[in-house]
Amino acid sequence: MRETDSKLARVVPPVLVIALLIAVWWAVVARSDSPIFPTPWQVVTGAWDLAQDGTLWDHIQASLVRVGIGFGLAFLVAVPLGLWMGWVPGAYYTLNPLFQMLRPISPIAWIPVAILWFGVGNLSPVFLIFIASVFPMIVQTTVGVRTIDRRYLRAAANFGVSRSVLFRRVVFPAVLPEIIVGMRIGLGVAWLVVVAAEMIALNSGLGYLIMDSRNAGNRYDLVIASMIIIGVIGLLLDGATRLLEQMKTVKWRYVR
């Protein structure tokens, strides 16, 4: 298949599907004459108004900052911890069962605890995002270390390099692709959680925008607009972490 063909094949069908979905949505709303559920055009104009008066950008920024802090902290904790647990069997056998047990608990279940500990300010969502993204990143990093191909460790032992060279030149680069996978998972969950956390008791963020639009006079045009914006931003965040996979030093993991 030629390059242009494959590009067309990748762009056209998804665009058509989305266009079809919008058309169906429009037709159904127009026919049913629903007083509450908006048409696509009402969603666009609603979002436009919010963008004009600046509140939309404030909400987006609030959500992104929370994710940035919570995810950043989780990253700083998870990577060293994961490397340690992967390398030292004692640490693995001691901590892994605990983390495996904490991991399947939905971050939403932590909301009451978060409110009790951190109140209803900015700290609660940051804590929830931290909790949500730290475990996948720990697990992924740990697994990455434990599955380093033995031949590479043998080669390092064969050349008798120092411990610091072993870590900088072999262990860390060997695990880096797994760390990036962990980051993708962690950031994805973080974005899911921020919206849920903001629905509880805040006055900014996209999650708050959804709840506030519903409560303040059933503005479902803004509810739908927020949902679409959340989806688009989530896509962009994932795309940004995927760019890391293009780094020359991790490409070996994704080719062949």
Partner: peptide, 29 residues
Amino acid sequence: SRNGIMISQQGSVFPWLTVHENLMFALSG
């Protein structure tokens, strides 16, 4: 030991290092 180097069937050239970096790695010790 560095005194005797193993070359195996699957190979153990580090895929995350360039050709030059692989040799420099070996020399680092």
